[in-house]
Nucleic acid binder design. Structure first.
Lengths: 192, 192
DNA sequence: ACAGCCATGTAACTTGTTACATGATTTT
DNA sequence: AAAATCATGTAACAAGTTACATGGCTGT
């Protein structure tokens, strides 16, 4: 929801046309990755569909301006007032991958962890091109990427220390003999 | 991609039917949140469409088993061999929210941060019901959630210390006077 | 003339996710 | 008999994202 609400929040500051809005989003979000312009228009269409913005004037230069609605303003304040909590509790690709890898018999989980660690170190290195004491250089998004990478590295170390080297490397065969219960029937299957 | 590849990886251990597969995924992924059964079937359909699994036997009990294909096995090893890197570099809801909030004139960014911090502390507390020295209790997924919450807390503190209190709280008005260039025309708009 | 950016849009697709329908079987 | 659980599936949607089509304007 970050693109959707991000664009909407910017519109709460004043009307924008699509391309301009994309620029504002990028500017506030750090230029390291740019929002695809197309996504701006797609998102505006959906915001309009949901009644959060309206198509406003076309100005003297032909720019199509969008205007936030009352419902839109409400959505922005709700977004800012409520914590991002629930969405953040959701599935994490890296975590799921490691969790699954650990349970796979033929797989060297330590090697998978090593690969991820190397990639994270690379990412960290790319994030610190000038390690000067310039505080402004470390913007919000950059620092977030740094903290995230460092956190994931620490977690990978933790997994290696506690789970992989622990006494129980876990017991995860496919449970083949499931006690039958529910639905399947049709004379308990014709096939096989 | 974690559900898709997670299920596929489990199938690389042996054939499963949908409901069983869901159970295996949950078991390996921590029971704290269960995969919606429907998603298992949806994902299996898509995996089949992509040629990564095949519909196999219906056994004596009527269970519809799915079998991984060669292409599927390849996809699993590719998944495990390559780092999750690029996907992780993508947009983060919390980060985007804070980044945007900081640039919004009327908004008390410190309050937004405070809200997020409280939610994270709640989440952390809920994650540590029994702070015993039981290593096994701290599973992979739980520890990941803990590290993540702690990392985000640390980052929020960092943002507050360095960005909010810094000399420049930033200069983010809507850039209204954009130098005209591109496309709009039609006699430079009839409207307005 | 042509490259390159400004600008608007559309079509298509992916993954995740939920709600619902249906029905069998087991436990209470 | 009713509740719970096992089981298979479908329909529908959200949000992110990319590729492409189209065309104008500006600087070289």
């Amino acid at each position: 929801m970050s693109v959707k609400f991000g664009l909407l929040a910017i519109l709460s500051e004043g009307d924008c046309y699509g391309y301009q809005l994309r620029g504002e989003f990028d500017r506030r979000t750090g230029a390291r990755s740019s929002l695809n312009v197309g996504q701006t228009y797609t998102t505006l269409d959906r915001l309009e569909r949901d009644g959060l913005v309206e198509r406003g004037d076309v100005n003297s230069e032909g720019h199509v301006f969008y205007r936030i609605t009352q419902a839109g303003r409400l959505a922005v304040t709700d977004w800012l007032d409520a914590a991002e909590a629930s969405a953040r509790a959701s599935r994490d690709d890296l975590v799921t991958k490691i969790a699954i890898a650990v349970t796979l018999p033929g797989i060297d989980a330590a090697a998978v962890i090593a690969t991820e660690r190397l990639a994270l170190l690379d990412r960290l290195a790319a994030l610190t091109p000038v390690p000067s004491d310039d505080q402004i250089a470390a913007g919000i998004v950059d620092s977030a990427a740094r903290f995230k990478a460092e956190g994931e590295l620490a977690w990978l170390d933790h997994v290696e220390r506690t789970i992989l080297t622990g006494p129980v490397r876990a017991d995860f065969p496919l449970a083949q003999d499931i006690p039958r219960r529910g639905r399947p029937s049709a004379q308990q299957a014709a096939t096989v």
